[in-house]
Design a binder for these strands. Structure first.
Lengths: 122, 122
DNA sequence: GTCGATATATCTGAATACGATATATCTATG
DNA sequence: CATAGATATATCGTATTCAGATATATCGAC
C-alpha cells in the first residue's frame, strides 16, 4: 500500500463529501470547499474539472446541463451550469474512502503518538 | 493551500516520527514502518533513500556511517549502515507536521461528518 | 464598454511515486 | 565452494499527479 491511504486523493474525498449533501455544479463546489474550510483549502479549476470528468466516466457521479433562461425576453441563452450528483456507486465509494481515511489516520496516530512529546496528547 | 495538508508527504511525517523515538538506519526504518502498521504500509527503497538524503540536506536529520569491521566475533555486524537521527530543527518540523495533520484532519471531518450518513455514526 | 466575478475546460512544466535496477555484504543450505 | 535469499544503500525511468496559466463565454456593476 506504500502509504497511499494518507493521500489517496483528498480532493476526491472532499468533492464526494460535498456532493453527498446535495447536487452541485463545479464552481459552487470550489466555493463551498473554500467556505467550509474557512479559506484553508482551495480547489483550482485545473484540478476540479478533470476530477469531475473522471468521476463521471467511472459512474460515481452523474451530470446534466442546466440551461438557465432567466427571462423569456432575454435574447441570450443564459449561463451554462453542469450539475453533478452522487450515484449509488459514488455513495459506496465515498463510504469506502471515509473508512480508509479513518483507518489510515488511526495507524498514523501510532507513529505520531510515540513521537508527539511536546503536543500534550497521549 | 490547495488541500495539500491532507497529503503533505505522509512518508516524511512517518519517517520523522520513527526517528523521533530513536536513531535508526534506513533499512530498519522501512521494517519498523511495516511492523508498526501491521503490514498495511511499506516504504520502498526508492522513496526512502531519496527522502533521507533530502532530510539530511535540509538539516532535519544528521547522518553518520557506522563502519563495523568484519570481526568474526561480532555476529550481526560488519555491514555498512548509515544512521540517521533527528536534529532540533527536525523535531520542530515534526511538531509542525503533526499539528498541520491534525488541523487538516479536523477540517476534513467537517466535510466527512456531513456526508457520513451510512457509516457507524448517523 | 470595461472590469471583475461567474462558469467550464484544457494545457503544460514541475514535482512526486513506485517499481526496477545496481552494488555489496552476510547467512543459510546443499 | 556455490548458490540463493536476506540485509543494506542508492539511483533510474516511467507514470501519475499538481497547480498555475491559458482559453472561451456569460453576467452584473459602474
Amino acid at each position: 500500500m506504500a502509504l497511499s491511504d494518507l493521500k489517496t486523493d483528498g480532493t476526491e474525498l472532499v468533492v464526494l463529501s460535498v456532493l453527498a449533501q446535495e447536487p452541485q455544479y463545479g464552481y459552487a463546489i470550489s466555493k463551498h470547499v473554500a467556505a467550509l474550510s474557512d479559506g484553508a483549502w482551495s480547489i483550482g479549476a485545473g484540478q476540479l474539472y478533470p476530477l469531475l470528468s473522471k468521476l463521471e466516466k467511472s459512474k460515481l457521479v452523474s451530470a446534466s446541463w442546466d440551461e438557465v433562461k432567466a427571462d423569456p425576453d432575454d435574447s441570450g441563452g443564459g449561463r451554462r451550469r453542469k450539475w453533478y450528483r452522487l450515484t449509488a456507486k459514488g455513495k459506496q465509494r465515498l463510504q469506502q474512502r471515509i473508512e480508509a481515511h479513518r483507518k489510515a489516520t488511526a495507524v498514523l496516530e501510532r507513529f505520531i503518538g510515540g513521537a508527539d512529546v511536546a503536543g500534550g496528547a497521549a
